[in-house]
Each structure stands twice: as structure tokens, then as C-alpha cells.
């Protein structure tokens, strides 16, 4: 395994290995609760909170956790923070909590979080783990914001409730329905795929040219 610099730990998850669009993790909330920007932000922040606290705890307790029960322990830790996030959201912003419904509780099974614990926090020092968790959390938040923004702008003609196109805008209802989640995710991954392909093609072109020059 290649060693990484602390800077890489942080930046990797934000864009280059974006958890949703490139690792395809955490798709359930990305599809289900991104119908408005507000919901997307609430979900992104709740997930960020759970990921950050879990990484902190897992990384600092890793020497006490026996290998055999590590997954159970991680799940226990994650579930605790999810329950906390659930209760705090319900008490502080009940309207948002009503919209997000069961999906807050489902953060427990967001493989992105467990994945970071198993792949990173359980092996690396606390500082690095927090960098990694912050980067991944921000990446997830960005992904949720992109999806939420796209869907709310098209589906309601608003951004964070602010009207963009005037009152006679015809909303694309499908975008705030579940089908719109799949469509949006498809659109964005199409863009990522296109970009990757272009990059590979360019790299190949370059190496071909170099090969010709040297030969």
C-alpha cells in the first residue's frame, strides 16, 4: 500500500476520490434526501458529524479493540452518534427532521462511514484519521449539495427556498421525486466518466507522442 501525505489524506476524499461519485458509497442518502438543498445540507452535516466523531473514537481506541469484534464495535460507535444526531436534529430543527425521516437512522448503514473506520481510522494515528474523516465528510457534503442544488433548481425553481426564475417557472416535478435522484446521479456520474475518459485519452496521446519521439 502506497503511503500518503497528511495533505493527501485530507484532499483525497473531497474530489479525486469523492465518496459518492467515484467510490459509489453512501448512495442511499444521496438518492433519497437530496430533493432540496436544505435537506441535503442537513443530511450532509449529520453524516459529517457521525463520521468525524466515529473516526476520532475508533482511531483513539484502536489499541483496545480486539480484532475479532472490531466491526461490531465500530457499528456500536457509529450507531451511538447516529442516535445522538437523530435526537438533536428532532429537538432543534423538527421540520427538517420530519423531511429526512428514517434516513437519519439509516446513516448507521452508510458504508462510507464504516469503510473509513475499517480502511483508515483503525490503522492510522488520530490526527491523520481526523484529516481523512474531514476530507471525506466534506466530499460527501459537496456531493449532496451538487445533487440537492441540481434537483431543487430544476424541480422547484428555487435554491434554498429562494426563487430563481420568477413565479411562472414550470417546475420539473420529476426532479424532486425519487426518479429525479437517479437521473441526477446518472447525469453527474456521466460527467465524471467523460472527464476520466478524456484524461486517459490525453495521457495516452502524450505517451504515444513521447514514444514516437524517443524511438
Amino acid at each position: 500500500m502506497r503511503t500518503t501525505t497528511p495533505k493527501e489524506d485530507f484532499t483525497r476524499g473531497i474530489w479525486r476520490e469523492n465518496p459518492v461519485f467515484l467510490q459509489m458509497l453512501g448512495l442511499c442518502p444521496a438518492l433519497a434526501v437530496t430533493n432540496t438543498v436544505e435537506n441535503a445540507i442537513a443530511m450532509g452535516l449529520a453524516t459529517f458529524f457521525v463520521l468525524f466523531c466515529s473516526s476520532l473514537l475508533v482511531s483513539s481506541c484502536k489499541s483496545f479493540i480486539p480484532h475479532e469484534v472490531r466491526i461490531s464495535t465500530y457499528i456500536l460507535i457509529i450507531a451511538t452518534f447516529v442516535t445522538l444526531a437523530d435526537m438533536v436534529l428532532e429537538a432543534v430543527v423538527p421540520e427538517v427532521h420530519k423531511e429526512l425521516g428514517a434516513f437519519i437512522a439509516l446513516i448507521v448503514v452508510n458504508c462510507m462511514i464504516l469503510g473509513r473506520q475499517e480502511a483508515f481510522a483503525s490503522k492510522k494515528p488520530v490526527g491523520r484519521s481526523l484529516l481523512d474523516a474531514t476530507g471525506t465528510g466534506i466530499g460527501f457534503l459537496i456531493a449532496m449539495l451538487m445533487m440537492g442544488g441540481f434537483r431543487e433548481v430544476l424541480g422547484m425553481g428555487t435554491f434554498l427556498g429562494f426563487e430563481l426564475f420568477g413565479p411562472s417557472y414550470e417546475p420539473w416535478v420529476v426532479m424532486i421525486l425519487p426518479a429525479g435522484g437517479f437521473l441526477t446521479l446518472g447525469f453527474i456520474m456521466l460527467g465524471f466518466g467523460y472527464y476520466e475518459q478524456r484524461k486517459i485519452a490525453k495521457a495516452k496521446e502524450m505517451s504515444d507522442v513521447e514514444g514516437r519521439v524517443t524511438s
Binding site: 464495535t73 456500536l76 460507535i77 450507531a79 435526537m87 429537538a91
Partner: peptide, 21 residues
Amino acid sequence: TLAVAGAMAGLLIVMVNQFTQ
């Protein structure tokens, strides 16, 4: 390990619940 972790988790949740409920 699991029991301690579970107990701590329960304690934390109960504490926050006192505030939110």
C-alpha cells in the same frame, strides 16, 4: 469490550435524551 462500549454508548444517549426529549 463490547459491554463497555455498549454501556458508554447507552450512557451518552441517555444523557442527550434528557436534553432533547
